[in-house]
């Protein structure tokens, strides 16, 4: 039984990185595809499309920071339930936020391609999604400090 609890603890520690990486991969892929398509249709301003398409990569960075933070607590029978709960749920939040941010970025690229003057505004929905990922990141760090080793 102890082994299972410890395994769940490790699962919790690595979830933010693994799930964040999956989300970032999907989000950057979607946004990158939209950027490639947009480059076929415009004559200039390619750099901003490619730059924007990298926006969903932040989730995996948050995941790495959370992993190191949780890892410092150490995996034990006492700490594993907390690590599992916080780590897994944060990972899921990062995964979904990256996927949907990728879609928001794809929409922003599509819109600003046709109307370059709205580039700044069109990024706002993707920035709001980023805000939710930051919430999950910050509160995972705060709550993680209360887990007793």
């Amino acid at each position: 039984m102890d082994s299972l609890i410890l395994a769940l603890g490790w699962l919790g520690i690595f979830s933010p990185v693994a799930l964040g990486a999956v989300g970032s991969a999907i989000g950057c892929s979607v946004a990158g595809q939209a950027a490639c398509g947009a480059m076929l249709d415009v004559e200039s301003g390619y750099g901003k499309f490619i730059g924007l398409s990298a926006m969903p990569s932040s989730q995996v960075i948050y995941g790495i920071v959370i992993m190191f933070s949780l890892n410092t607590i150490g995996v034990s029978v006492n700490s594993s339930p907390g690590l599992f709960g916080i780590g897994l749920l944060t990972g899921i939040a990062l995964l979904y936020s990256a996927v949907y941010q990728g879609q928001a970025v794809a929409a922003a690229i599509n819109a600003s391609k046709n109307k370059p003057e709205i580039f700044g505004l069109s990024v706002a929905p993707a920035a709001i999604v980023e805000g939710f990922a930051v919430f999950a990141f910050v509160f995972a760090l705060v709550l993680g400090q209360q887990i007793v080793a």
Binding site: I26, S29, V30, Q33, A34, A35, C36, G37, A38, L40, D41, A106, I109, N110, K113, N114
Partner: peptide
């Protein structure tokens, strides 16, 4: 489904 993004983004707006 995801690969339709490239095609759709490459088409000019009507």
């Amino acid at each position: 489904e995801n690969t339709y993004y490239t095609l759709l983004a490459s088409l000019p707006h009507i």
